[in-house]
Lab assay of single mutants.
Amino acid sequence: TTTLTYTDEEEARKAAEELKRRGITFTYTKRGGTWEIRIK
């Protein structure tokens, strides 16, 4: 499992869109002031 952490929502959203485009499965979690993208 790879976890990407972002403090900028815009960056996190761009990363999530890129992963979706590649067909990669991930979970997206907001934790306080950070956003976590966990790639399975």
Rank of each mutant, 00 (worst) to 15 (best):
T3N: 04
K20T: 14
R38F: 08
G33R: 05
Y28E: 06
F26Y: 07
E11C: 12
L4M: 10
T29D: 06
T1S: 13
D8F: 05
G32W: 03
W35R: 01
G33T: 11
R31E: 11
T25Q: 14
T34L: 15
L4A: 03
T7F: 12
K20F: 10
I24H: 03
T25R: 12
R38T: 15
E36R: 03
K30V: 09
R13I: 14
T27L: 06
G23C: 06
I24D: 02
L19Q: 01
A12W: 09
A15S: 06
E36H: 05
F26T: 01
D8Q: 06
T1G: 12
K30Q: 12
K40S: 14
W35A: 02
I39Y: 10
R31V: 15
T5D: 02
L4W: 13
A16W: 03
I24L: 08
A16E: 02
Y6S: 01
Y6N: 00
E17G: 08
E9A: 07
Y6G: 02
T27W: 07
R38D: 07
E10F: 11
T29E: 14
T27D: 10
L4R: 05
L4E: 03
T29Q: 09
A16R: 04
E17Y: 09
K30W: 07
E11W: 04
L4Y: 14
D8L: 08
I39S: 02
W35V: 10
R21P: 01
T29F: 09
G23N: 05
T5K: 08
A12V: 02
T25S: 14
K14G: 06
A12N: 00
L19M: 04
D8H: 07
I39A: 02
F26G: 01
R31S: 13
E11T: 12
T3E: 03
E36S: 02
K20Q: 11
K20H: 10
K40L: 15
T2K: 11
R38N: 10
L19D: 00
T7C: 10
G32H: 07
A16N: 02
G23Y: 02
A16D: 01
L19R: 01
K40T: 15
E11V: 06
E10Y: 12
E18G: 06
F26H: 03
Y28L: 15
L4F: 13
I39V: 06
T3R: 07
R22M: 12
T1L: 12
